[in-house]
Computed example of a mutant assay.
Amino acid sequence: MAQLPLDLQFISAADRDDFIIGESNRLATSWIDRWPDWPGQYRILNLVGPAASGKSHLAAIWRARSGATYLSSLARGAETGDGQDFVLDDVAVGDSWDEEALFHLVNRTAHDGGSLLVLSRTPVSRMSWTLADLASRFRAVTVATLEPPDDVLLRQLLEKYFADRQLAISLPVLDYMVSRMERSFLAVQTIAAAMDRRSLAERRNLTLPLARDIMTEFADGTHARQQALPTGSQPTGSKMEDS
């Protein structure tokens, strides 16, 4: 099954200058910035990390720069267009990725002077490919692993979300949220969007009592994934009552 792209609207995913870098994604980001100077005959970069680790964001940045074709599966004999650069999303051994088709795409990309950005949850070099030639190609790829975001990056992401909407939030409130939230980009969106909506609906500032309410509800499973509100949802300079 193809990995669902995260709709983190508070991060302009295709805008490199607006992308927040932390220790968890620094190496992967440096490889994206280094393109097209990727090493090896086949110029393949494998971004490895769990769901919601930021792979899709970096892929969007690279696609905006390279014009790469996006593929979430590849069947034998499938048309892949005239491009020479490709993003292969959520690659794994199984029916979604035909090994013969992958092998020919790797060879074609190398022949055309293109590049492959492969997103996966485990390194493709360690997967149990049946086709020996494909396994050999994948053993030669460059691997960059994305770790879950650390506290510093989580705080920066939350700060950006609220700053983009002209919403003031204090460091103690941010620290409280970061110390209790799951280490993932998805958690940032869910919690920040819930705080945003609640503050607008109840005309409350982003205070510690509000954060406690949201974090309690999040821990109880009350909040599912929520879309980020668009920037400018709260007029600049508007007065909200304290909680």
Rank of each mutant, 00 (worst) to 15 (best):
F162C: 11
T130Q: 15
F86W: 10
T80M: 07
H104F: 10
M177I: 15
V93H: 03
Y161T: 14
R137C: 08
M177G: 09
E147R: 01
R165A: 06
D112C: 09
S115Q: 04
P123C: 08
V118Y: 13
S56G: 14
S96E: 14
L117E: 15
P123V: 07
P39F: 03
R137L: 05
L45V: 04
P172F: 07
L174N: 13
L88K: 11
V91G: 03
A51M: 00
S56V: 06
L154Q: 14
H57P: 08
S53I: 00
A51L: 01
A51G: 05
P123E: 04
R121I: 00
E100L: 12
D98T: 02
P123M: 04
K160R: 15
A135E: 07
P39S: 11
R63N: 10
T109K: 09
A92S: 04
E100H: 14
V178G: 10
S96W: 11
A163V: 11
Q41H: 07
I44W: 10
A101L: 14
L116S: 10
G81P: 02
L167G: 02
E159A: 14
R63H: 13
E100T: 12
T122R: 08
R126T: 13
Q156E: 15
G94Y: 05
A168K: 14
V124C: 11
D175K: 12
